[in-house]
Amino acid sequence: MSVTPESVQQLLDSENYGDRLRGVNMLRLLDPAVAFPKIEGLVNDGNVRVRYAAVSQLSTVGEADREQSLQILRDRLENDPEIDVKAAAADGIGALHLTEAYPDLEQAYGNTQEWLLQMSIVATLGELGDPRALSLLQQALDSSTDLVRAAAVSSLGELGNTEAVELLFPLVDDPDWQVRHRVAQALHRLGAEGEGVKSALNRLAQDPVEQVAIAAQNTYSASRGNG
């Protein structure tokens, strides 16, 4: 059966949440300009799975109306009762590069103890590319949650601000190997040089976890090749 705006709308109008969920997922097959107006009414759906799917789709179809997407994502980030939906809203803000919403992300991070939401906010900051994120990412490096620290390291690498380099040095000995691995990757992305960087990479190159050691060795080799 071919997917048309009419066939999708029939699913979206169903009282069965499974049909509505199918309809939301089919929206990705339509032109964003056609799909966006249909999503607007579903971001407040009574079923959390439907709301999550609708908010998640804004990461792509939201380009059809960035201003309205900004308003929707801000609202869901602040007001949705479900952490998963809030996290999807944070993801959408980063995917659409809605830097106007940076203060909303910062506030949401400070107002939650939920690691999933904190991680989504931290992870999206690298994609968002707003230089104001440096201080929040520095705060996230002290998180007691490994996944939040790892996401913060990656986002610092994506931001490309070399001021982040010294913030990464203490994490060379982080107890979580994935954090150490991302430190090696971030140092590569930042293109950092100097004795501190060399010392950090040498230490990481001797890491007992092979992935960490290889990433550090590759970063060190690349820096020498550029020198």
Score class of each variant (00 low, 15 high):
G62H: 01
T124R: 01
L128F: 13
H97L: 08
E100V: 01
A87I: 03
L128D: 15
Q113D: 13
R76T: 04
H97P: 10
A101K: 12
T112L: 13
N79K: 13
T60V: 07
A151Q: 07
A133K: 03
G126L: 06
A140I: 05
S59P: 00
L141T: 10
L77R: 01
L105G: 09
Y109K: 13
Q113T: 14
G129F: 11
R74H: 03
A64H: 09
T60H: 10
A90G: 12
E82F: 14
V55S: 00
T124W: 00
E82W: 09
A108M: 02
A152I: 12
E78L: 15
E100K: 13
A87L: 03
E82H: 11
G62F: 00
L77S: 00
N111Q: 15
S120T: 12
P81E: 09
E67L: 09
L137I: 08
L77V: 03
Q57P: 01
V148D: 03
W115S: 15
L70C: 08
L128Y: 14
L70I: 06
Q113P: 04
N79C: 10
T112I: 09
M119C: 15
A152T: 07
L70N: 02
A54Y: 04
K86I: 08
P131N: 12
A53V: 03
P131T: 10
V148C: 08
A64P: 13
W115K: 05
G92W: 06
P131E: 15
G94C: 06
E100N: 13
E127N: 10
D80P: 02
L141N: 03
A101R: 09
I121M: 11
Q71Y: 06
R149Q: 14
A133I: 11
Q113Y: 07
E100S: 15
Q118Y: 07
T112Q: 04
Q138Y: 10
L77N: 01
I93C: 04
S135M: 10
Q139R: 15
